[in-house]
Design a protein around this nucleic acid. Sequence first.
DNA 1: TATGAATGAGACTTCATTCAT
DNA 2: CATGAATGAAGTCTCATTCAT
Lengths: 212, 212, 212, 212
Amino acid sequence: MRTSSQKSTALKANPAPTEARVPKRERGKLRVAALMDSGAAVIAERGYGAATMTEIAARAGASIGSLYQFFPSKEVLADALLKRYGERMAAALDAVVARADGATAQAISEGLISVMTDLKADRAAALVLLDARDESKTARQKLREIMLGRIERILCLAAPRLTQGKAQMMSVMLLYMLKAIPPLLAENGARATQLRDEARDAMQLYIANGIG
Amino acid sequence: MRTSSQKSTALKANPAPTEARVPKRERGKLRVAALMDSGAAVIAERGYGAATMTEIAARAGASIGSLYQFFPSKEVLADALLKRYGERMAAALDAVVARADGATAQAISEGLISVMTDLKADRAAALVLLDARDESKTARQKLREIMLGRIERILCLAAPRLTQGKAQMMSVMLLYMLKAIPPLLAENGARATQLRDEARDAMQLYIANGIG
Amino acid sequence: MRTSSQKSTALKANPAPTEARVPKRERGKLRVAALMDSGAAVIAERGYGAATMTEIAARAGASIGSLYQFFPSKEVLADALLKRYGERMAAALDAVVARADGATAQAISEGLISVMTDLKADRAAALVLLDARDESKTARQKLREIMLGRIERILCLAAPRLTQGKAQMMSVMLLYMLKAIPPLLAENGARATQLRDEARDAMQLYIANGIG
Amino acid sequence: MRTSSQKSTALKANPAPTEARVPKRERGKLRVAALMDSGAAVIAERGYGAATMTEIAARAGASIGSLYQFFPSKEVLADALLKRYGERMAAALDAVVARADGATAQAISEGLISVMTDLKADRAAALVLLDARDESKTARQKLREIMLGRIERILCLAAPRLTQGKAQMMSVMLLYMLKAIPPLLAENGARATQLRDEARDAMQLYIANGIG
DNA sequence: TATGAATGAGACTTCATTCAT
DNA sequence: CATGAATGAAGTCTCATTCAT
C-alpha cells in the first residue's frame, strides 16, 4: 500500500490541492458533471482501488489530462462524489422530514425506503467509497450525521413523546436497516418487489414498537 | 547459479492452479493456519484490493515465497478464506438449528445474532471479500445457501405451520438484517450493548409477526 | 497522493489489449520505433524468455512505463516485431518476384539468398520469436504464407511448366534451406563468403533439377 | 537475467558442483534415466527458460529434492542432456561412417538424413539447449565437432580425391542442411514423406556435384 | 485548456536452490 | 537418499500523477 507522495524531489511543491476546481464556463460544468457520473459508474463497477483514472476519463469522453484539470487527484474526485451524494441524500430525506409530522410508522418506513431506492447510481459508488478509503472517516462521519439527524427528526416529529436517547438509538438502528435495503433488492432481483414490502414491514414493526 | 530468465511467458505454462496446496507436514499445517489468519486480518484491515501479499506473508512471519507455496495466488487465498468462513459459519448455525425446535422468536433472534457476533476475525475478512471480488460469485452463492438454508430450517422448526414461500422470504430478509449487525456494532462501539438489544428486538418483532 | 492499492485483481478488468497502441504524436512515433529496434536487438541477443522488458526499455532510453504505454505486454511487442518483419520480408521478396520472369536457377537462388542476408537485425529477433513462443502460431503461419506464396510465384514465373504440386513442394524445401542460411553465415564468420557461394550452389542445383 | 549466485552469504561455499552425481545403485540409475528423459521432454516442450525443475522432477515421478540429488543445478542437467545427445549422435554417425567407403551420393544422403530422423526425443531438447544458453558455447562446439568430423570423414571415404578444404566446406554446408530437416518434417507433417525425399534429393545433388 | 506521452514505485508472481526432517 | 517446505531476487505489468506541446 502506498501512502507517500510520489513527488519526492519536488522543490516548491504547490501544496497539493485538495479540492475540485470549479469550472467557469458552461462547457466546463458539463464536463465536470460527465466526469463525476463516469467516476461514480466506474467506481461502483470496479471498486475504488480498481477504478482507474484513465478509464474514468475515457468513459466521460475526456482525456486523462482533462480529468486532472478538474480533479487534481483520485482522492479529490472521491470526495466530490461523496459530497454530491450527501447533498442529494439530504435533499431526499428533507422531503421525508417535511411529511413526518404525525406520520404513521408505515408512512415513515415507506418514505425512508423510497429514499434508499432512488439515487441508485450515486449510492453504489458512495457505498464503495465509504468503506474502501481510510481517509473517508470525515466524509463517512458527515454522511452519517446527515442521515442520522434527519431520521431522528422524522421520528420525533412522528412521535413527540419519544425521549431523545431512544430516538437516537432507533435512528442508528434504522440507518443500518436502511443500508441493507439496496443490496437486498439488488441481489434478489427476482423477488425484489416482495422483499421491499417485507423490509417495509420489518421497519414498520420496529418503528411502531418503539413509538409505542 | 542461474543463467537465463526464470519467468517464461513462452509456451502455454501449466494452467495456473486454482486451489490451495494442502500441506503434508506438520510445519506446513502450522504455516498455512498462520497465513490464513494473517490474510484474514490484513484483508479485513485494508480491504481486498489494498491488502498486499507481501504484508500478509510478513505478518505471518513467512517469506513471500512461502505464502505462494500454499496459496498460488491472491485469489486462491481469498477463496480459502471464504471457504473456511463458510465452514465455521455452517457449524455455528447448525448449533442454532439444533435448538430451534419450537423455539420462541426471541430465542431465535438471540441465537442468530450470537452467530454473527462470534467468528469476528474471519467475518470481517469474509464480508470484505464477498463484495470486493467479482469472481467470488460461486463462493458468495455457496455462503448464501449455507446461511439461507439453515435460517429457513430454523424458522420451520420454530413454526411448523409456516408456508415454504413465506419461510424463504423471511430467511432472505433476516439474512440481510443479520449482515447489518457486525458493522452496526463495530461502528457504534460506545452503544454496542444497547444496539445489540435493539437489533434483537427488531428481528424478534419481525419473526414473531411472521410466525403469527 | 495515493492511498490504496493500484493493482486490482478485483473485478474483471478491461480485457487486456492484444495490440500495440498507435502513437498519435511525433514524439510517440519516434519512441515506438526506438522501442522496436531495441526490442529486436535484446530479443535477438538473449532469446525471448531471457529478454527483459526492463532492458528493452532501458536500451531505447525509455522508462519501463513508456514501453508499456505502447506495448501493453511482452507478447504484444513480440507480435509487433514479427509483423514488421513480415512486412519487410514481403517487400524484399516482392522485389525478387518482380525479376523472376524466366529467370535462371542461379539468379533465383542468388535473389533469395540476398533476401535472407538483408534485414539482419530484424530477422535474428524474428527467428528467435518464431520458435520460442507457442502463441505465435498465427504469426508463424502468416509469415510462412508470405514467404511460401512468393517463392512459389517465383518458381512458376521462372518455369511455367512446373505443376502446382511440385512447385509447392519445392517452395517448402527452399524455405527451409533459406532459413538455414543466416545461422550458417553467422556461425561460420570466417568462411562466410565461401559458404554463401556453397549455399547458392546447393539451392541452384536443387532448383535447376526441379525445373528440369 | 541472473548470473550471480544466490548464495551470497555462504561461508565455505562448497565450490558449486558442476557435474552430475553418478548413482551407485541400480535404483539410482533408473531414476537418473527417468529424470533425464523427463528433462529432455519438458525442455523440448517448453524451452530451456520455461522448463522448471519442479515440473521435470514431477514428470519423472520424483521430488524436487531428489532431482537436485543427482543434478545439482539446472545447468548441470542441461549439460548432461547435451552430453548424452552427443554420444548418441556420435554413435549414429559412426554407423554411417562404417558404410561410407565408396558409397554413392544417394547412400550418404540417405544415411545422414536417417541419423537426423532418429533420436527424436533427445534432439528436440538438444536444439533448444544449444541456442538458449550462453554457456553452451563449449557444448555447442563439441557437438559441432562430433558432427563435422564424421561428416567430413564420410565424404572423404566416399570420394578420396576431395581436397581437405573442399571437404570441410561441404561438411559445414551439409551440417546446416541436416539441421533443417527435423523442423522441415515436423512442421509439415502432412507431406513429410515427400519432403523427406525432396531433402534427400537436394543433398544428393549437392554431394554429387561436389564429389565430381 | 486539452491532449497524450512519460515516469517509476510498487504489486503480484515465479522458480532455482537450500535444508530440516 | 527422499521429501517437501522455505527463501528471495528478479520479472512482468499497472496506474496515479506530471508535463511538454
